[in-house]
């Protein structure tokens, strides 16, 4: 029953992006909207929802062979959570997977976040074009036009 004409066969590998929230954060509207927008641009989203632990999320990165990870925050303890996640990812050998953040991130924290290893920060009002552009560059497929 396979669709023989599927153009996916010839295109370059599909980008797989893991999206989720850490800790007790429950405002998932932003990340759901982002998931849909990325889906509509040809990206496969592995949606983890809220209440993830750093350990669980890292294992998901491995099992899903994710190309990048997106986290969304609406509470103020994102510095701690992000540091913990990136530490766990490094311990588990997937520290090279790019991490991007969205949600209520204070501009004055972005230097600290980048120093931790966060490679993309998208606060409220970010444009989807910018996010897509970042994703394609982060996973090393910048030469591809966004679908």
């Amino acid at each position: 029953m396979s669709d023989l004409s599927s153009p996916a066969d010839r295109a370059s590998p599909t980008i797989r992006c893991l999206l989720g929230m850490l800790g007790t954060d429950v405002h998932n509207k932003g990340i759901r909207t982002l998931a849909q927008m990325l889906r509509d641009h040809g990206i496969e989203i592995i949606y983890l929802g809220e209440h993830n632990t750093c350990e669980g999320m890292t294992q998901a990165i491995i099992a899903e062979d994710a190309d990048l990870v997106g986290l969304s925050y609406s509470s103020s303890n994102y510095l701690d959570y992000t540091r913990q996640l990136i530490d766990t990812m490094r311990e588990q050998g997937v520290g090279d997977v790019p991490v991007m953040l969205g949600g209520l991130i204070h501009p004055e924290d972005s230097d600290a976040l980048r120093q931790m290893g966060v490679s993309g920060i998208f606060g409220p009002g970010s444009k989807i074009e910018d996010i897509l552009d970042f994703i394609h560059r982060a996973v090393g497929r910048a030469d591809e036009p966004a679908r």
Partner: peptide, 15 residues
């Protein structure tokens, strides 16, 4: 079928 993208949401239930 339009974009080729997907939202894979089964994993949420097994978190």
């Amino acid at each position: 079928p339009f974009s080729g993208g997907a939202i894979l949401g089964d994993r949420v239930r097994m978190n």
